[in-house]
Design a binder for these strands. Structure first.
Lengths: 359, 359
DNA sequence: CTGTTAGCGCATTCAC
DNA sequence: GTGAATGCGCTAACAG
């Protein structure tokens, strides 16, 4: 009986915490109008030193922070960017995400993430949904068909792609120069003396995969035969595809990415196949681990964080922050060959390697 | 002259895209009231089949999606969770994040991420900021002092910690049983015959570090000496601390985490120190790579995604979704020892180490 | 310089 | 069942 009222309260505010202060509370506390509080906080109009101090004190006392949803509603902008990634667990995308986040932070923007779980079909909806929360969306390595991407660009205000250019470069994008990177790998292997190589294909719908194929076609010929092996984009895929790669009789295996190569390496180890003695192996991306692995992976260096940052800049310069801006620029990030320990001349080439090396 | 009006329009909407449809547009299009549109979309009240169809058609025609900011403002809830991580690039946190994201998605919640860049001082602000955007915040491995955490819990409506329990378990948390995990590692090493081991310490302020220390104290004694080596939580830290660990003369090195062990392994390789022949090495967490590395790492398995999912559940059951709920529960996730190839009996037990190994 | 007013887009009372 | 009005928290436009 003595505590009925109190009980009702407890039931109402779960956790028994005080309701959040609004700008009106602050205004009351400082004995000014809400508009003055707003002016102090946003700094849009000058306010007398006296009032400013009173407002600041009240803000601190109440621990007030403006409600971004309300601000967004009014301004028509949320001060947030969305990022759609196939898999945050993939170190590649984690780095890109970090790049966007860091850059966004400098402009005081939040980052929202959607993980599509490698399901290409989920990309469209994820981007659309994020676009309602954020002022723009960064789409990482989207697998969706060209047509869908074009439609999406219509519906999402500030769409930026990473590693994908839409038809005619209509949507701003930052892409790695996969073609040059792949060409570099091919040249490197050929110079080492490899004549039969296997390529572990990435997802068929990936734009970067098509760019790689162009390089492969250009490099292949009678003295440089390329065997295509279906694989995928995860290290598990690499692990699974390793046997098929070996079965082609190739002396070198080019993986879709470092992440894939990781799995290949593990499988080769299980099989007792030594890299690079028995077969050479290359990756792509140069993730942090590739230098920590043994053998250290020959790969193509790509600055992942930079990719994210460039994507942010594209977003920013497309008018997402200040208003109008250019649109449809495509930025190409360079890809540099990093020669390490996982590639060597093919076993039969010049000197037979000392057989004693193993065990 | 003939195009002045048009030019004004272009200037207004950058990118020349049609303004986003509001609920009023839909209502007009369907020739109903906004309230009816709302009822159809939220499904709160019954609407006649005829009107419902008209509304749905209009929605599709206009590609209308409700503005979550406006909804949030009205409902006082945003349908989003914030996640604060020290580093998304760290595969451990990437997995936890994935766990939260996946679980949240099932309840139709968005995920917001803040990366503090391993700076403990940034945690408080990041969480506070996120709390204005989201209905709650998941704090991963916060390094902030106890006092600060307590204050933060006061200011953030639905705060959940991962791998950190506040004083008295006031804030809901899901924590790995670090103590049991460390104890398991110690027992394993001792059974192998190790008597002098080095431990690569994590960040001093990390709660998990203190839990590990408890296990270490309990395990150490005259026949199991533990040398503490300052290190850190990244693989780069491990790379740097490897020499010092060796200098202690220990026969086994326990790393703060798998991620750290990665760096140690690389450094040992550079030094010509063989694992586990010259020295044994253990990790903690069992990240995906630990099974792909050679030697495969002996470690303690922790389900990272599960951690994230459990954190979400704690958030959900704390009334963030439906209203009132319990508060302050602490869930402990088990930690299972995984014995792989990086640990073996100490060399001295049977054969002495070749002094030539260290140049 | 400051206070008052209106309205961002939406869900939710109320009347009908 | 349905439509008209109200207000969530905030800032931009006005008035003073």
């Amino acid at each position: 009986m003595w505590c009925n009222a109190a009980m009702d309260r407890v039931r109402t505010d779960a956790g028994a915490r005080p309701p959040r202060a609004t700008i009106i509370d602050v205004a009351r506390e400082a004995a000014v109008s809400p508009a003055t509080v707003s002016r102090v906080l946003t700094g849009t109009k000058p306010v007398s030193a006296d009032l400013e101090q009173r407002v600041r004190d009240a803000v601190n006392r109440l621990g007030y922070r403006p409600n971004p949803a309300a601000q967004g509603l009014l301004r028509g902008a949320t001060h947030a960017v969305g990022v759609v990634v196939p898999d945050v667990g993939n170190p590649y995308f984690a780095e890109v995400l970090k790049g966007v986040t860091n850059a966004a932070e400098e402009s005081d923007f939040r980052t929202l993430v959607a993980d599509t779980g490698e399901k290409g079909g989920a990309e469209h909806d994820a981007a659309l949904e994020l676009s309602r929360w954020a002022d723009g969306v960064v789409l990482c390595s989207p697998r969706m068909p060209q047509r869908e991407l074009a439609k999406l660009a219509q519906a999402v205000p500030h769409l930026v792609c990473v590693n994908r250019v839409g038809r005619g470069g209509q949507v701003p994008a930052v892409v790695v120069d996969f073609e040059a990177g792949m060409a570099g790998i091919c040249r490197h292997l050929r110079e080492l003396g490899h004549r039969r190589v296997a390529y572990l294909r990435g997802p068929a719908r990936a734009w970067s995969e098509r760019a790689r194929q162009r390089a492969l076609r250009a490099a292949s010929g009678p003295d440089f035969e390329v065997f295509q092996v279906p694989c995928g984009s995860s290290s598990v895929d690499g692990h699974r595809a390793a046997d098929a790669a070996l079965a082609t009789g190739a002396t070198a295996v080019m993986a879709f990415s470092d992440y894939v190569a990781l799995g290949v390496l593990a499988r080769f180890d299980e099989l007792g196949v030594s890299v690079p003695r028995d077969v050479s192996l290359t990756g792509f991306d140069d993730i942090a681990l590739s230098e920590l692995l043994r053998p250290r992976l020959t790969t193509v260096r790509v600055s992942k964080q930079d990719l994210g940052r460039r994507a942010w800049e594209l977003f920013a310069s497309s008018g997402a922050i200040d208003g109008a801006g250019e649109t449809g620029r495509v930025v190409t990030a360079s890809a540099e060959l990093i020669t390490r320990d996982s590639t060597a001349p093919p076993a039969g080439a010049i000197t037979p390697l000392p057989k004693t090396a193993k065990a």
